[in-house]
Design a protein around this nucleic acid. Structure first.
Length: 507
DNA sequence: TGAACGAGCCC
DNA sequence: GTACGCGCTCGTTCA
């Protein structure tokens, strides 16, 4: 018997569609003049980079090979140039098309940023930068120009469309324009793009994010006691702990760069089913950075002690061969990562590990699985999909369920404030300053206290981190808030004051 | 003109 | 024995 989606789950999607269509109607204000100006500026930058490339001796070789067809934006040509003509050794290959013969390789050497990262010549650096700026103009800025419309108030808005029927894990997706993939991690590009999205006039953009949404939901599935404790204890720092194990450091020796590297390349990667070999390779690669130093330690010359030097002293002198066919050699980082992996799943999170086995075996037996939010998933899925999709899906459903209530209550209370968007585990708002505390409390309580009452399976309680920008600010100006004597104020008061003046001005 | 592919951004 | 997953949008290439 195939598993059946519950009535409740169906109703969640129906009501979710209604709430999302209201949000689509509201739209997000954009700064049309800024976008136009930025497209011009970035255009100059791209032309300058292309001019530099054409002066480069390497360009002459490109001309010899491709003649009139030479194109500075062709990944195919750059890959051939670098890895065939210039003789660099390819380390990343492309997928290539379908093939009857599994032994046949159809891919070519990749021209991605990762594949070209170690090709240290100006021509390639300029190529990568030009490509990145091109993407910025054609996709991100271009989409705003294509999609924006003028409202009766004279300002310009985009109205992203949200879908609940396109994703196999029962998450949402977003298009025309996609509001869910705007630069965030690259500071320079995040600044350029996020300044284009503005609050309505006399409003403040706001955001209510679930903190570590998927980690907490995962703990609700596995009930691993260590994971549950870490998810509930604000002082727990599993990323730092993993960094200590992996790099033979004491907690106070872990700087921000190291912690972030381990968080992304070890904790999350392992959590999503990656394994020691690719983790070791990625971390080793990140450790080449000059930022990878041991906090508070210096080398013989009095300079900050690099983590690679520190590891050498601990007997780890090289990455290792990273050959899936061979056992890792002792004394390599690869071998060390394998040992840490055994500790991680065998000792630190044994219940989580057991849950993965049980959950997958149960899927194999029944041919499907049920999400805690009532969605039935029947069909053929890979092991990691079976383990990850209920966690991803359920995390989004927490936001969706709360969002439905929030949209209804905003209407009921006749708030001027509006929900303007959603990014899987965060809610985006235009907040009228006069309603600010009420709006944030309503969102926070709906996403936490109220939700837990609806879904008692949330034994690890969700948490919300509100942010907002100054009146008439942009998405780039978001700053974290904290609750103080019943009202919401900037978490870092000094930083806020230095940038935007006194908080009392935001009214 | 359309499909396939490669590339890069988000959670 | 494993080899994170899910999306959207664009430019290039080729039929």
């Amino acid at each position: 018997m195939p598993l059946t989606t519950t009535f409740e789950a169906n109703r969640l999607l129906l009501e979710g569609s209604l709430a999302l269509s209201e949000i689509e109607g509201v739209g997000v204000r954009v700064d049309r003049e800024y976008v136009k100006k930025t497209i011009e500026d970035v255009g100059h930058t791209i032309r300058a980079l292309h001019a530099d490339m054409q002066k480069d001796p390497v360009f002459a070789r490109m001309r010899r090979r491709f003649g009139d067809k030479t194109k500075l934006s062709s990944a195919d040509q750059v890959a051939k140039l670098v890895f065939e003509d210039l003789g660099y050794t390819p380390v990343v290959m492309t997928e290539g098309g379908e093939s009857e013969d599994p032994n046949e390789r159809r891919g070519r050497a990749s021209a991605s940023a990762k594949a070209l990262e170690h090709v240290d010549i100006p021509f390639v650096k300029n190529y990568l930068l030009a490509q990145k700026y091109t993407k910025l103009v054609t996709t991100y800025l271009g989409n705003i120009m294509q999609e924006m419309v003028q409202h009766a108030d004279g300002d310009w808005y985009v109205h992203p469309s949200y879908n609940l029927n396109t994703v196999v894990t029962f998450r949402s997706s977003c298009n025309n324009p996609n509001y869910q993939n705007i630069y965030k991690r690259d500071p320079a590009f995040a600044a350029i793009m996020r300044k284009a999205y503005r609050s309505r006039r006399e409003f403040q953009l706001g955001e209510c994010d679930y903190s570590s949404a998927e980690v907490k939901v995962a703990a609700n599935y596995t009930l691993d006691p260590t994971a549950m404790r870490e998810a509930m204890d604000p002082k727990a720092d599993p990323h730092r702990e993993a960094a200590c194990k992996l790099l033979h450091l004491r907690p106070e020796q872990v700087n921000k760069y190291i912690r972030n590297t381990v968080k992304a390349a070890w904790v999350f990667a392992q959590f999503y089913g990656d394994y020691y070999l690719s983790c070791a390779r990625n971390i080793w690669f990140q450790l080449q950075s000059p930022n990878a130093v041991v906090e508070g330690a210096t080398d013989a010359a009095g300079k900050p002690l690099h983590v690679l030097e520190h590891l050498k002293a601990k007997g780890i002198k090289e990455l290792g061969d990273c050959d899936p066919e061979q056992r890792p050699r002792p004394g390599t980082f690869e071998a060390h990562a394998q040992q840490v992996e055994e500790w991680y799943w065998g000792v630190k999170y044994p219940i989580h590990t057991q849950w993965k086995r049980d959950w997958y075996n149960e899927y194999l037996r029944r041919g499907g699985f049920m999400m805690k939010t009532g969605f039935a998933v029947n069909g053929v899925y890979k092991r990691n999909e079976v383990i990850n999709s209920p966690i991803q899906g359920s995390s989004f459903h927490c936001l969706l369920k709360a969002m439905i209530r929030i949209v209804k209550l905003f209407k009921k209370y006749k708030f001027k404030s509006r929900v303007i968007g959603e990014v899987h585990d965060s809610l985006n708002l235009d907040i009228h300053p006069s309603e600010r505390d009420d709006v944030i409390n309503l969102c926070r309580d709906s996403m936490t206290t109220w939700l837990v009452k609806q879904w008692p399976w949330l034994v690890v309680p969700p948490q919300v981190e509100p942010e907002c920008c100054p009146v008439d600010g942009s998405w780039y100006d978001l700053a974290a808030l904290k609750e103080q004597d019943g009202i919401w104020v900037p978490a870092d008061a000094d930083k806020w004051a230095a940038k935007y003046g006194d908080w009392s001005l935001q009214s």
